[in-house]
């Protein structure tokens, strides 16, 4: 058995500060899921190929399977658990739920975060602009159509009204 070098690493995840004693080779993906119980971040390949494990670092999408926590100490990490404000869904989450943009839902957290970053830099992206921004995220269920629709809808809503929380209901009672 090899000796494992461990370091104390300070991480800022979803606005919360955490200090963890971690083997240096453990990826951010593993640390989020296994040490911080933030299992909303999923894994599809652990080789940086599928985009499933996308998180935001200082607002920009990064693949958590390719990052080591020591690389990003002190930077703001956002996972899917940090996307809603309390029980109020982010407009992207609301639009994904309404339009059926999540089928199995496994790629959804990574795509939502990548889309959040996109809309923050370009609130009204073209459809091709959305495709370009999300091209690193694979989805096997939806054929991408409803995801594109949902990002457009969320962008429109965020433009027409200042970002504010929407009640955390997918609207099961109302006709949409």
């Amino acid at each position: 058995m090899r000796e494992v070098d461990r370091h104390v690493v300070a991480l800022e995840v979803n606005g919360e500060h955490a200090e963890l004693l971690l083997p240096v080779h453990k990826t951010l993906l593993e640390v989020l899921r296994e040490d911080m119980q933030l299992t909303g971040t999923k894994h599809g390949c652990e080789l940086g190929e599928c985009g499933t494990c996308t998180v935001l670092v200082d607002g920009k999408p990064e693949l958590s399977c390719l990052l080591l926590p020591v690389q990003i100490e002190g930077r703001a990490i956002t996972t899917i658990e940090g996307m809603a404000k309390g029980s109020d869904l982010h407009p992207l989450q609301q639009a994904f739920a309404e339009l059926g943009a999540a089928q199995c839902g496994y790629c959804t957290p990574g795509i939502l975060l990548a889309a959040k970053s996109l809309l923050e830099s370009d609130p009204q992206p073209t459809r091709d602009g959305i495709r370009e921004a999300l091209a690193g995220n694979l989805c096997r269920c939806t054929g991408y159509s409803k995801i594109l629709d949902a990002v457009e809808l969320a962008g429109d809503r965020m433009m027409s009204s200042p970002p504010r929380g929407v009640a955390q209901s997918a609207g099961g009672d109302e006709e949409l």
Binding site: T39, G40, K42, L89, Q93, G105, A170, G172
Partner: peptide
Amino acid sequence: GKPLPKPDAVSKVTGRAIYADDML
């Protein structure tokens, strides 16, 4: 015939759906 969202839509868009590997 109505285009309603799924019953688990919110858990899936908030990362709270528990897949097998999320269990520990």
